[in-house]
Structures are given as structure tokens and as C-alpha cells.
Simulated scan of single mutants.
Amino acid sequence: MSLDARYFAELYAHHDDPWAFRTRWYERRKRDLVLACLPQQCYQRIFEPACANGELSALLAERCAHLVCQDIDPTAVSLARKRLAKYRHASVEQARLPNDWPSGQFDLIVLSEVGYYLDANDWLQVIERSAASLSETGGLLACHWRHPIAGCPQDGREVHARLARHVPLYPLLRHEEADFVLEYWSSQPSLVDLDETC
């Protein structure tokens, strides 16, 4: 994570939901769109770095057999663990991107609201590690606020422009609104899951 850990510690020092993930309609609607854009009903293994307090994580846990979550902030990790307590197949680790990347392959990697906290070099490493960690039918979903954020090295437009230039995957979906962009890339040019059982 290119921004200093104190940036996030200060946010969580004042509120356990600093981005209002639980209460804002914008955030709830965006989570619904993220889930609706996933081309498979069920994934074997999902990785969600920068999971914050676990609001999206809990919904991803309903769509997979194993979920690996990470966050740089210890308060966020504690909150996400509480949020995911009923999902025995979910784990939350304190980790810093891009260095603390989990081992193994994933069928889905979700990069939601994380890219602008990384400088261009660190973000490129995340892109490369994501592509290298995907299974043969794996997918990468990215969703970011499009406007500049004070103190962040990139904005959402730059984050997705770098993804488009550097990710060696097939673009399957792009949803863009005035405030955010959501994209999905796949290891395969088409994904139609005929086995819809979890």
C-alpha cells in the first residue's frame, strides 16, 4: 500500500465505517452491481484485498467455497473478522499490498476501491500478481470511484487506464457511471457457467 498505514488508522480512529459502506445507498447499490456483474454463480476461491470492514466480503462469501480477505489496518481486519464470523470458509489477514500477496490460485480477484491508494508502480505489481494468480477460468473484477481523492497518488480513471493497458486478460464487461467504473476481465474470452451449483 503506497499510502502510509497511518492514513487508514486515522480514518478508523473516528468511525468503524469511515466510508459509510453500511449506510449509504450509493454503496449498497454498487455492491449489488458488483455481484450482478459476476458471470459465475459460484467460485471455488476468491481473493479480496483491501476488504475494509467486510461489507462486500460477506456477500462474496455467499458466492464461493473459500474466501481470502486482506486489509492493511488492524481495526479493519478485526471488523471484517466479526462481519465474517459465521462463514467458516472465510479468512481475514492483515497485509500490505503489493508485497503480502497470498499463495495459490484464485477463480476471482476483487479489486474494489483500492487502486488509487497505490502509486503507479505498486498498482502495476498488483495487476501483474492478479493475472499470475488467476486459475484457467479465473476473473478479475475492479471497481473504483472516478473522481480524484485528496492525498491519493491516482484517481479511478488512472487506475482503470493502467489496468486496460497492462492486464493480459480478456475484457468481458465494463459498466461506467458518472461516479464509478466497474470492469471484469477473464482468463477466457467467454464464460458461460453451465454448472450452476455451489
Rank of each mutant, 00 (worst) to 15 (best):
L134Q: 02
L169Y: 05
R165A: 09
Y87S: 08
D122F: 01
A120D: 06
S112P: 10
V68E: 08
R146N: 12
E27I: 14
E128N: 08
Q94L: 05
V114F: 03
W25K: 12
A164L: 01
V68Y: 07
P189R: 10
Q94H: 09
S2D: 07
C51V: 14
D107F: 09
H175A: 08
F106S: 06
A58W: 11
G104P: 04
L163T: 00
H89L: 06
L140N: 03
E196H: 15
Y26K: 09
L172C: 07
L172R: 13
V92K: 04
H160G: 00
P102C: 11
V110I: 12
N99D: 15
E177R: 13
P39I: 15
L84T: 02
L182T: 02
V92S: 05
F21S: 14
S190G: 07
C42W: 15
K86T: 11
V159G: 01
E136W: 12
L84G: 04
Y26F: 15
S57M: 01
P98T: 10
N99G: 14
A20M: 13
I109V: 15
Y117Q: 00
R63L: 04
F180L: 10
I109L: 15
I109F: 15
A131Y: 05
L60H: 07
R81L: 10
A36G: 07
